[in-house]
């Protein structure tokens, strides 16, 4: 099932990936082939098979409620593209 250019644009938007118009046909072709390839799964009978989210059959471990972290803001914000007064800065958020 080939993906249309619009579908590619829509997926790219959902994933917030900027893709140039010129690259859209190539992605449409690649993704269509990948989706065709994985569509083989339809041929497997899974009517009585439980879904498997995880390789291990374990349950979640719980942490004690203790504060173990101290502020390392300056260290962590060294990697920030833009920070000021302890805040990470981004283009204006409009609500």
């Amino acid at each position: 099932m080939p993906l249309s250019p619009d579908e590619v644009r829509n997926i790219a938007h959902l994933a917030r990936l900027g893709i140039s118009e010129g690259d859209i046909p190539r992605y449409a072709d690649n993704l269509s082939r990948i989706l065709d390839f994985v569509a083989q799964l339809d041929d497997a009978d899974t009517s009585r098979v439980p879904p498997m989210a995880h390789p291990l059959d374990m349950s979640q471990r719980l942490r004690e409620d203790l504060v173990s972290e101290t502020s390392q803001r300056e260290l962590y914000q060294k990697n920030a593209p833009q920070a000021e007064a302890g805040l990470y800065l981004v283009p204006k958020v409009i609500e």
Binding site: Q82, G86, L89, V90, P91
Partner: peptide
């Protein structure tokens, strides 16, 4: 506080 940008806490 800061013109044209938002600060994230």
């Amino acid at each position: 506080d800061i013109e044209g940008v938002s600060g994230i806490d």
